[in-house]
């Protein structure tokens, strides 16, 4: 969102070039010194709205301008090799920038000139965009082979399926019917907390069935202690029905 605006910001090189060109100056060290104050004023004003990133790009350039300006004011000032090369670099970049800025303006004229070279869409002469053009390698055998291979690969990838232990599947309906019968005969039964691995599935179904009975108000449950036995008894209302 915020980045979208980035594109419209004036960058440091652009601003510097503007300042130099406004005064119709050539790009030279002396002239860069001359626009330093204006540039810094711009950066200060920018500080209120710009992002830290853009600001830091500006400050890099401002720092170099200040070195140029200092040298101008104090001619005796000795610059380090690094400072000296940074000044040259700034001048050089500004000149490069000016070239490409101008080239961009030329490209804009061409772009707006509405002189595009137009083309035919890919294989448009074949009327239909989709062409059935099987390669010579595609035969009944090769397709069959490929499919078999695919199935083999898929078989390896497929998650392990576990077969239900002997005794078969227990459905929720079965269990509910069983429970209702038991409740009719015994009035109550208990569910123990601890189960073996084999019983696990059955207990889950049992538990679900109890929940269903509860929801249908066909049973009542009670549990004395935490993790203790659960006593399931026929609901009073169910009995009266």
């Amino acid at each position: 969102m915020f980045e979208l605006r980035h594109d419209y910001y004036v960058g440091p090189m652009e601003k510097l070039l503007q300042l130099v060109e406004e005064r119709q100056l050539e790009i030279s060290r002396v002239n860069l010194a001359a626009v330093t104050a204006d540039f810094i004023a711009y950066v200060q004003q920018l500080g209120e709205t710009a992002t830290a990133e853009l600001l830091s790009d500006f400050i890099v350039v401002a720092a170099r301008l200040l070195v140029i300006k200092s040298k101008e004011l104090v001619p005796d000032l000795t610059l380090t090799d690094e400072e000296e090369s940074q000044i040259i670099d700034l001048e050089y970049r500004l000149k490069l920038y000016r070239e490409f800025k101008a080239a961009g303006v030329e490209l804009k004229k061409m772009w707006d000139g509405n002189r595009q070279l137009l083309v035919r869409p890919f294989l448009s002469g074949t009327k239909d965009a989709s062409v059935f053009y099987p390669s010579a390698q595609i035969t009944q055998q090769s397709l069959h082979g490929a499919l078999e291979q695919l199935l083999r690969v898929m078989a390896d990838l497929a998650p392990e399926t576990r077969t239900v232990a002997a005794g078969g599947m227990v459905t929720l309906q079965q269990k509910m019917a069983e429970l209702t019968d038991r409740l009719k005969q015994q009035m109550s039964f208990t569910i123990q907390g601890r189960v073996t691995k084999e019983q696990k599935q059955e207990v889950i179904v049992l538990f679900l069935a109890v929940l269903h009975l509860l929801a249908g108000r066909l049973a009542e449950v009670s549990q004395e202690d935490q993790f203790g036995e659960i006593t399931v008894s026929a609901a009073v209302s169910a009995e009266s029905e």
Binding site: R64, D81, S85, I88, E91, Y92, K95, L96
Partner: peptide, 23 residues
């Protein structure tokens, strides 16, 4: 010339410094 920003050639007449190395 952009290709080697590390060995920038002096473009201006004033830049006589031999070691023009980009920052």
């Amino acid at each position: 010339k952009i290709k080697q920003p590390s060995v920038v050639e002096p473009v201006s007449e004033q830049s006589t410094s031999a070691n023009a190395v980009a920052g």
